[in-house]
Design a protein around this nucleic acid. Structure first.
Lengths: 121, 121
DNA sequence: TATACCGGTATACTTTAGGTAACTGGTTAC
DNA sequence: GTAACCAGTTACCTAAAGTATACCGGTATA
């Protein structure tokens, strides 16, 4: 579940910096979050559509993760009044602000991966 | 992952991008990693010194996490031949390359925290 | 002699993340 | 009428992460 955001404790800037970092990490943490965000980057998707795209995810996990992302206002869920109902998920503008974070994670991850592979020969 | 990456990419490219991101996240994963790195940012520290600084961590967890960081070459462990022995931990140059990632996480986390707190009133 | 610091281990326990599989209520197509 | 698609939910289970507590050999302090 999402870690509860706690008020800054009195002993210093450092602690509140750590909390901010952990707030960010909490949102990206878990096996599926980044993949789900990734699958929404190029546009709206329906539930089953995402389940097909995000390899190996069960409906239970997809549902759970999407709820968390929705609570954090990174993802918007829209129910269309068709018959049968269709449900669209999309990144909010706010969700898109994760761009830079993901970009940095990616850049570092690529370097790290190269380094590890080099060591192994 | 961002818009500068062309939409017409293969599934394979996407997967390897996800892997890189997850490689990076894996290293920062867990309750204590960032705090430990944080406590080393301003210089070398001894084991107990870190345990005092990283609030609430047990020696078991600190030991475990430091080992992982050492294996990933982010932290260097040095045993000094004093009596009794003292052990110093420090960030490697490689470890310091995480600073951009951490900076982005921090920047985003701060905004997120403000947003959430504003909503609560 | 007792106490506390150092850098950790060992053992046992609880909590959480995530997986499995079955099922819901509705709709459409064969 | 039965099979399949949609958008999920429910109950149960396992493995990993994390906690609690005690302990180790060695040294230093009172």
């Amino acid at each position: 579940m999402t870690r509860k955001i706690e008020p800054a404790k009195s002993f210093g800037q450092c602690t509140s910096q750590l909390m901010a970092i952990n707030d960010a990490l909490d949102i990206l943490r878990g096996k599926w979050k980044i993949q789900i965000i990734g699958s929404l980057i190029f546009g709206k998707k329906r539930f089953k559509e995402m389940q097909r795209e995000v390899n190996g995810i069960t409906s239970r996990m997809l549902s759970k993760e999407l709820k968390e992302l929705e609570i954090n206002e990174l993802v918007l869920r829209t129910v269309h009044d068709t018959i049968p109902v269709s449900v669209q998920y999309e990144l909010t503008e706010y969700g898109k602000t994760l761009d830079h974070v993901i970009e940095e994670l990616h850049a570092w991850g690529v370097k790290h991966r190269k380094r590890i592979i080099r060591k192994r020969g």
